[in-house]
Nucleic acid binder design. Structure first.
Length: 272
DNA sequence: CTTATTCCCTGATTGC
DNA sequence: TGCAATCAGGGAATAA
């Protein structure tokens, strides 16, 4: 499940490896008919070659590959997507959904078991990422902004953290970790989170993301970085997938419940 | 505007 | 042991 720390790790990996390269060929598997958005895959494969990769940025969980001519190649990995760069052509893989060759013989391989991943080739990225909430690691994410968000909503606070239009880039792992950091019960109504707890949540979100980023992301299942290596943060999570294990802070067994349709892990003692 | 539910997809897990 | 039903999850679409 690539979330902000995982996508940012991939971005940094790819940035050092493919900026300046020109795309020489593109292929999309016929068994991935939903991968390319807004245009037929054949059109996408025809347009991409010839463009030089100028930069790579990230917005929430979206990767934006800036191409020559002002075009953007946007990639979302969803649940099981992998976006890998290698020095030779993409190897045989039953889940290889798209492959791209670069002008130095290296390649980008898009591997995605569940086929939820999507990509766009588009002039105006705001059509794809324009409605996302603030970047939680930027100055746009403030305690006051978070407070405004929470007071208007009666949904569980975890549902708000997962809402990409509220804050961009948080998924199931870091929503649970952030709420633990802040000592907030995930089921608590957003508009009942106190002011001090809102401050704690703001800090808790940032800490969860920064901790994961420094570990190059969490590899619970499919996630690997831009070179195909696993992250390490799955070994350090405080609550996510630690059901029935003791809380590191108080020893109470971590509980698992369903909130906002997602598995949710928390310490019933530390998160009241 | 909000919140809840369904859908996409397939390997892993659970239940009988 | 075997096979079917359920689960996992990001986010768009749909319903209410």
């Amino acid at each position: 499940m690539p979330e902000l720390p995982e996508v940012e790790t991939i971005r940094r990996d790819l940035l050092s490896r493919i900026v300046g390269r020109t795309i020489t060929s593109a292929f999309v598997s016929s068994n991935a008919p939903r991968l390319v958005q807004l245009m037929p895959p054949a059109e996408f494969c025809k347009q991409l070659p010839g463009h030089r990769i100028e930069d790579i940025s990230r917005r929430g969980k979206y990767l934006l590959v800036h191409l020559s001519g002002g075009l953007y190649w946007i990639v979302h990995l969803r649940m099981t997507g992998r976006f890998l760069h290698r020095e030779d052509p993409c190897p045989e893989d039953p889940y290889l959904r798209a492959g791209f060759t670069l002008d130095n013989g290296s390649s980008l391989c898009f591997v995605d078991l569940r086929k939820f991943g999507t990509m766009w080739l588009i002039d105006d990225p705001s059509l794809v990422v324009g409605k996302l909430g603030p970047e939680p690691l930027s100055d746009d994410f403030t305690v006051a902004g978070l407070r405004d968000l929470l007071v208007r909503r009666s949904a569980p606070v975890k549902a708000v953290l997962l809402d990409q239009h509220a804050i961009a880039g948080i998924g199931n792992i870091y929503a649970d970790e952030a709420l633990f950091n802040a000592g907030i019960n995930p089921r608590r109504a957003a508009n009942k989170v106190s002011k001090p707890k809102t401050e704690a949540l703001h800090a808790g979100v940032r800490q969860a993301l920064l901790d994961a980023l420094s570990d190059r992301g969490s590899s619970f299942s499919d996630y690997v970085d831009g070179s195909g290596r696993s992250g390490r943060h799955q070994l350090k999570v405080k609550v996510f997938r630690r059901t029935d294990q003791p809380c590191y802070s108080c020893g109470t067994q971590i509980r698992r419940v369903k909130v906002a349709g997602r598995s949710t892990h928390f310490c019933p003692n530390c998160q009241r």
